[in-house]
Amino acid sequence: MCFSATVSYSAAAVLVPTGLYAVQQARRSLTPYWTWGLIPVFFGLQQAFEGRVWQELDAGNVQAAVPFALGFHFFSHFLWLWWLGLSSYVVEPGNIRRLVIGGCTVFGAFAGTLVFSVMLSHPEWMNIAIREHSIVYKFSVPYRDSIHLPITPAALYALTTLVPLLLSSHRLINIFGLLVALSSVLASTIYGYAYVSVWCFFAALISLYLVYMVRSLVAKSKPVTV
């Protein structure tokens, strides 16, 4: 599979208008599902940032690519950590599930703010390179070896983002969570060297499913007229 600026921009061109259509459908029905419609829009913007990263790297301007790489990481290391949880929370009817999902959302917002603020404060720690038609992002924190966690950062990220999706009482949201989980496994198995970039691309394509999901949930929320 080959990735490039063209692929990223093409994905953005499809995702943004498709997501806006889903948002429009949800807002017209006065339902809270518009937060789900924004997910393809956000993924489209993320892919547009990576398109610029590709362009700068292809031109040999590695340092010029850093601001756009930070734009890409705004979504991957900040927004996705809490937006998926928030979207699940606002449509969840069960009190216990809402409590757990809300906890994941708050934790994700805190963790994302902490991680991304460090990235913004130290852009010089960002290393970007092209390897086998994929972009490899590495953020080299000098004191990282002194930090010991009982769980790997990748596993903690997966739990924070996937638990709200898999715990939801809405079957269609569960399906989305399973698709995202499968794409994570595929990306880590085949493209482990460029996991962040590839998983976000796969998740971006999967987010098109949300247009169908929003339309289905909106239809179910409408009162039935006899």
Results as ranks from 00 to 15, higher is better:
residue 163 V to A: 10
residue 170 H to E: 15
residue 182 L to R: 01
residue 161 T to K: 07
residue 168 S to I: 00
residue 160 T to V: 03
residue 154 A to E: 11
residue 153 P to D: 08
residue 173 I to Y: 02
residue 180 V to D: 01
residue 179 L to P: 02
residue 180 V to G: 01
residue 182 L to Q: 01
residue 157 Y to D: 10
residue 178 L to V: 15
residue 154 A to W: 12
residue 183 S to A: 11
residue 156 L to D: 11
residue 182 L to A: 10
residue 182 L to G: 05
residue 171 R to S: 14
residue 167 L to N: 02
residue 157 Y to S: 09
residue 154 A to K: 14
residue 162 L to Y: 04
residue 158 A to M: 09
residue 173 I to A: 03
residue 158 A to V: 08
residue 182 L to C: 14
residue 167 L to A: 06
residue 157 Y to W: 13
residue 183 S to H: 05
residue 154 A to N: 12
residue 170 H to W: 13
residue 157 Y to N: 14
residue 180 V to Q: 01
residue 164 P to T: 13
residue 158 A to S: 15
residue 176 F to G: 14
residue 166 L to M: 04
residue 155 A to C: 13
residue 175 I to H: 12
residue 162 L to G: 06
residue 176 F to R: 14
residue 163 V to R: 04
residue 156 L to W: 13
residue 164 P to G: 15
residue 155 A to V: 15
residue 156 L to Y: 07
residue 177 G to D: 08
residue 181 A to V: 06
residue 170 H to C: 13
residue 162 L to W: 01
residue 159 L to P: 04
residue 154 A to F: 14
residue 155 A to R: 10
residue 180 V to R: 00
residue 177 G to S: 10
residue 161 T to Y: 05
residue 164 P to D: 11
residue 162 L to D: 06
residue 169 S to V: 09
residue 153 P to S: 11
residue 162 L to R: 02
residue 176 F to Y: 15
residue 176 F to P: 11
residue 157 Y to C: 13
residue 168 S to L: 00
residue 174 N to V: 12
residue 169 S to Q: 07
residue 175 I to V: 12
residue 160 T to S: 01
residue 160 T to N: 04
residue 176 F to Q: 07
residue 182 L to T: 06
residue 170 H to N: 13
residue 170 H to S: 11
residue 181 A to T: 06
residue 163 V to Y: 03
residue 174 N to P: 15
residue 165 L to T: 04
residue 178 L to P: 15
residue 181 A to N: 00
residue 164 P to A: 14
residue 167 L to S: 03
residue 163 V to N: 04
residue 159 L to C: 09
residue 183 S to V: 05
residue 164 P to F: 10
residue 160 T to I: 03
residue 182 L to H: 04
residue 181 A to L: 06
residue 161 T to W: 05
residue 177 G to L: 04
residue 166 L to H: 00
residue 179 L to E: 01
residue 161 T to G: 13
residue 157 Y to A: 09
residue 156 L to M: 15
residue 181 A to I: 05
residue 179 L to M: 11
residue 154 A to Q: 15
residue 156 L to G: 10
residue 180 V to N: 01
residue 163 V to S: 07
residue 160 T to M: 07
residue 182 L to N: 01
residue 164 P to E: 10
residue 174 N to Q: 14
residue 172 L to K: 08
residue 164 P to N: 10
